[in-house]
């Protein structure tokens, strides 16, 4: 019974991650896209925790949510904000 609960939690979190990934890719405002991408990274952090990989959680929480978003936001500030169709 408990493995089913565990796996269903993992599947819910990964589905949310997929939704965030879709939003990040379809959004034309790059700043919003970066925020959605950070949301997807947060979902994957929870997924890594549920998949019993604490080392990955420690590394990926800082990298996926912090460093990626910061570097991309600075890049958007240095270039342009809106993606042209």
């Amino acid at each position: 019974m408990i493995p089913i609960l565990h796996l269903s939690l993992i599947s819910i979190v990964l589905t949310l991650g997929m939704v965030f990934a879709y939003l990040a890719i379809s959004e034309r405002d790059l700043l919003k896209a970066i925020v959605y991408s950070a949301g997807q990274a947060a979902m994957y952090v929870i997924a890594f925790y549920l998949l019993m990989a604490p080392d990955i959680v420690l590394a990926y929480a800082a990298v996926g949510v912090g460093v990626y978003s910061a570097v991309m936001i600075i890049a958007v500030k240095k270039t342009e904000r809106y993606e042209k169709p």
Binding site: A21, A33, I34, Q40, M72
Partner: peptide, 13 residues
Amino acid sequence: LKKIISLTILGDT
């Protein structure tokens, strides 16, 4: 930049 965001999503997945 959109390509790079997509690349990070691909790698993480």
